[in-house]
Amino acid sequence: MIDRLRYQGAFLPVLTVVASLIVIWYAGAVFLNSTQLIDRYQRQDINWNLGRLAADAWRMERPVLPSPHQVGIELKKTVLDKRVTSKRSLVYHAGITLSSSLLGFVLGTLLGVALAIGIVYVETLDRSLMPWIIASQTVPILALAPMIIVVLGSVGVTGLFPKSVISMYLCFFPVVVGMVKGLRSPEPMLIDQMHTYSASRMQIFFKLRLPSSIPFLFASLKVAIALSVVGAIVAELPTGGQGGLGARLLTGSYYGQITMIWAALIVASIVSALLVTAIGRAERVALRRLNGGQAVTV
């Protein structure tokens, strides 16, 4: 009930923001495309005013910044008008990106949780592992991605998996950091209490540490899922031919099809937004259960 009211309350502000973004976008299209157009007007001795400039800027064949409706038309062409199995359908490409993101997300989460358990329970890992984990994230993924694809390809691993490895590489980090904190979050008093029951480490883990870490896990998962999409797209750049939104971005820039790039970007952000929302929903349900049915604010 309260949740619904909150969503309704958010609807108008969100709409306002979207509307102003579109207005800014149209203005930006005029501004960024104006140099080219004015150049042409002068060469062809055409009388022009601001109205004509705007009209021309919004329907250019090869704009620097396409206008929203041009991107909209491109989206309609590639999302709605094509069969989803067609290589020209953005839904098809989004599907490819989505599957490798999800696989990478699952693998990264598992890896992250496993590392966190190691760090919390094994003192030598606590001291030795964390610097490496942090160092792993300072390597630019853009440089690493082609190498991973090539190396895995040379040992015969191709297709979905190498791309997922790159998503996993980005995903596991927030999960490790969050889970280490989460597994250590129970108050000393609760741990002492477990000692008074003479509980084993395993029992303390499953009955206290793991449930206590759930809020931290979800905070990490929201970051991780968005990173997994980024990872998948970056992984698709060097494998251009095989499809995916990253491949579309590359093709678009190769042929100077700016509108195509924008359409792919928008689909990518819709995919991310849907995934983050899905995690947010799951979080709400999980935290509510963790609080004994009490409403939670996330």
């Binding site: 008093m189 209490q193 206290l208 004994g292």
Partner: peptide, 19 residues
């Protein structure tokens, strides 16, 4: 302690919210 010879009541209730 290992024989579970005592029960300990802490200053705070120390209840698990999910139970």
């Amino acid at each position: 302690r290992q024989n579970r010879a005592y029960g300990y009541v802490f200053q705070a209730p120390a209840l698990y919210p999910w139970r």
